[in-house]
Design a protein around this nucleic acid. Structure first.
Lengths: 188, 188, 188, 188
DNA sequence: CATGAATGAGCGTTCATTCAT
DNA sequence: GATGAATGAACGCTCATTCAT
């Protein structure tokens, strides 16, 4: 991860990758991403050694962005349920307002180009959310389940919820709440 | 009068595809699948016009197999919860005992080579399960949610559960039950 | 050239080849020709050992048919010019009324699948016409040119004439006469 | 700033295509053409998007070269016959001295990969010759024939003449004159 | 002999990556 | 560093021909 000259160009590539992956999938040519970024195809490889490197970096960036969006404005004093709902709403809002990022992240998440290391790092960025979740379920029926299981379920319910919010934006808020309630029933 | 198209060869190809997709993903060369099936690469195209056709056929076959496995031995007289749990357990068992099929199906499900028609047909094979689910949530908190939302959540919780059962086979049964209980709490 | 059982099937293949070549060119799959003939693809090869063999046989057949059509009803007693014009008209009529055969023949003529032997044999079938041509030019300006040269020119002018007759059928007769007159001026 | 697209390499490919097509026909693999040009197979597609594109470009180049060769040194003040003969001789000389180009052009001319647009453009390059031909026949017996018909006949007689010049180079000049005389008789 | 499945070499094209400018 | 041409392995699919039935 050498520090290349132009941070600007690097982010142009990353942003282009989001758009291109969202619309064409992970099979999209690097040349297309470079073009979308307004950069020569060869230049992409000065910023990311391989296509897989770009994907891993993008994965991490999106994870981090999502995590940070989720925690924004967290009411520190509120009870767990309120805090959790705040985080949940933030996540849903981020997904709905950045559908391309969400789609790209979804694709990356199931790709086998993403290394275990990246996945681990990705989970770390979500540590704040996980901690909340940890406490939320502390006295509930899933108190003894592996944490990873709980996280997976939350993600899964979250994904389903996002899909419905995007498909039916008029009722986005309702879907968001319904999803959260279902999750809360499952774990708390 | 001529060498008939051999059902045996067809299934060899399908079975090979399962193995190859499980280990190499959907990007695996058709030639690899053919070789794994012990067939000339050209022969694959006698049975499936296109790589995508093979994928769609495989998707449907796996969906059907999973559905049929899920419903096997359904206790017709039991209450919904028991019936649902039966189906759930069957699904989990199928996934755990056919991990390659499960991985292949997971990949196919997110692929954009699978046509809407195939997806629709795939959902039809799960109609029996869906009907059960329908009645199970009839009086619960999700009684007014779109059915598709409920299905998605069930699948998501199921997927998460399977992963944990496979990762930690010693406690497979426990995970299966925990997953089901979480689902039941969410919807009934 | 073993004698296969069904002469009928053989000609079905040949006839199919004419149609298919006319519409798809020489690159058309043998399977397409077989299908058009209502025969299994493998059967084609009991009648013609290779695709090239089929082409050569077809070439000869079309050449022969054209030659025979050209000489039909030749007025034995008339002068050369009249005889030549008769032959010329017959050729043009054949081409115009069998456009597929003509197109197929044109393609075969320039193909390098046609062996020199076939070409020689093809020319032989045109011997009657050539003899006429021979005498026609006997006292004209091309009396010393190689016969093959004269034949080539005749074919060339003939081809051009056919094209115009087909393109503009209303004036077919006029074009036919104009072509013949041009040829006659050139050689007699 | 980057390695510029090398005109040299482009012409190497075009020249290689001439040779390969002359000896193996239009069915020759692009890989063979690339190899003959001393280029990686992929590079061919940097210069020509498609095999058909290469063919069309080559067709145009050969047409243009032939046209330009035909008109070289045209005696502006001479009468039509002399001018026509000059053009005719130039054409024949070009064909005889570039037999591969001539063969390649002949194959391309009958190929259905050549688009109508290319054909139209090809004819434009021959406009100078056509104009001459137009005036040459103005008072002759073909004065009312469609121009396209006249052109076709000229090409046909020309092709036949070339063949004989190449087959019998000792008498090339004689054949050239004989061909021209035949043409002139036909049209003027 | 008829059939059509089986075979596998072969082809046009793509694309991640390298490298000359 | 930036550029984009160069590279060549790889892929999906075709099709003439063979051969089991």
């Amino acid at each position: 991860m050498a520090k290349p000259r132009s941070e600007e160009k690097r982010s142009a590539i990353v942003a282009a990758a989001v758009r291109v992956i969202a619309s064409q999938g992970l099979g999209a040519p690097t040349a297309t991403i470079a073009a979308e970024a307004g950069v020569a195809n060869g230049s992409l490889f000065t910023y990311f050694e391989t296509k897989a490197d770009l994907f891993n970096a993008l994965y991490l960036e999106l994870k981090a962005e999502m995590a940070s969006a989720s925690l924004k404005g967290l009411p520190a004093k509120a009870d767990f349920r309120k805090q959790m709902f705040h985080v949940w709403s933030n996540s849903m809002d981020w997904a709905v307002s950045s559908p391309e990022k969400r789609r790209a992240l979804a694709q990356l998440t199931v790709s086998d180009e993403i290394t275990p290391a990246s996945r681990a790092a990705g989970h770390k960025t979500m540590a704040g959310v996980a901690a909340l979740l940890q406490r939320a379920r502390a006295n509930g029926p899933m108190r003894n389940a592996p944490m990873a299981f709980v996280v997976t379920i939350m993600n899964a319910v979250g994904d389903a919820t996002m899909d419905f919010m995007i498909q039916d934006p008029a009722n986005a808020k309702k879907h968001s709440k319904a999803g959260f309630d279902a999750l809360w029933r499952a774990l708390a």
